[in-house]
Design a protein around this nucleic acid. Sequence first.
DNA 1: GCCAACGTTGGC
DNA 2: GCCAACGTTGGC
Length: 156
Amino acid sequence: MGRHWLMKSEPDVFSIDDLAKAKQQTTGWDGVRNYQARNLLRDEIAVGDGVLFYHSSVEPPAVVGLARVVRAGYPDPTQFDPKSDAYDQDSKRDDPRWFSVDIAFERKLARAVTLPELRAQPALADMVLLRRGSRLSVQPVTPAEWKKIVALGDGK
DNA sequence: GCCAACGTTGGC
DNA sequence: GCCAACGTTGGC
C-alpha cells in the first residue's frame, strides 16, 4: 500500500470542488516553495499514494476530501514562468529547485472534518498538522491517522 | 486584521 | 557561521 499525505490549499485559490471540476479531475500541485515540502514532493511521494485535501485559511479549516497521486515528482513548471507568482529566477532548467506532483480527485468526504474536531481526537494528537507552529503545506499522515479521519468524515 | 511561529536573507 | 531583520503562513 502507498503512503498518505495531507496537502493544504486555500479554497479561495483552489478548492476540492475546483479539483473535481478540473480537466481529468487532475491538477499539478505546483507553487510549493518550502524546502521541506519540496523534498517530500521530489523524493517521497509516489504514484498511488493517498492525499487528504485540506482547506486552510477559512473558517473552519478542514479536511474536505480525498485525492490520489497520479504522477510522482517532476520539476514544477511555474518556477520557470516569469508571469507566475511562483517564478524563481535563480532556478536552473538543468538543476530545478522546485518540484510538483499531480493529484487526481477521488471523492469528497461525506462531511468536512474540521480542525477543532481533529484537535479533539486523542488518536490524532501526534499529527504533524496539529503540532504547534506547524505550517508545512505538504505533510505525511500515518495509516492510523488516515483511517481515523476518513471514518470521521464518513460519519462512522 | 492581528500576530505567533517559522523560514529565508544578507551583513558582518 | 551568527543573528537581526524581514517575509510568509495560517489560525484565531
